[in-house]
């Protein structure tokens, strides 16, 4: 449990820092970036066979907190429909491709 929590501590800070820097324009590049990279890295992590406390720390904790679903959905909700569809598709497309590459 503590490994997940400490991973979450750092994952949230890393995501927040990237968000502050790159979510400034009209498009949330920061959220897009963390979700794609996070999905890719989690794929690699699982494929590499890491288990136990390291998996809880890096995977469930850090990468779980580094990526976010709620912010992504809320951002999509606030966009115009066409842009929101593009945002959802590009995140899923690139994120799934990343996870697939990693796995």
């Amino acid at each position: 449990m503590i490994f997940v929590a400490i991973g979450g501590f750092f994952g949230a800070i890393a995501r927040f820092w990237i968000g502050q820097r790159f979510n400034t324009s009209s498009f949330p590049f920061g959220t897009l970036f963390v979700n794609i990279i996070g999905a890719f890295l989690l794929g690699i992590l699982i494929e590499s066979g890491v288990e136990g406390d390291w998996m809880l720390f890096c995977g469930t904790g850090f990468l779980g907190a580094f990526t976010t679903f709620s912010t992504w959905m809320l951002e999509a909700r606030k966009m115009e429909v066409g842009k929101a569809i593009f945002y959802v598709i590009i995140t899923c497309g690139a994120g799934f491709f990343g996870a697939w590459l990693g796995l």
Binding site: R15, I46, L63, G64, A65, T67, W100
Partner: peptide, 27 residues
């Protein structure tokens, strides 16, 4: 506010697990 929204709720939800689980189901 940021600690609660970006911190707690942002970390509570996850995209990485969602992607990997979807791809694992497909594979």
């Amino acid at each position: 506010q940021k600690a609660i929204t970006s911190g707690i709720i942002g970390s509570f939800t996850t995209f990485s697990a969602f992607s990997v689980e979807t791809i694992a189901l497909f594979e």
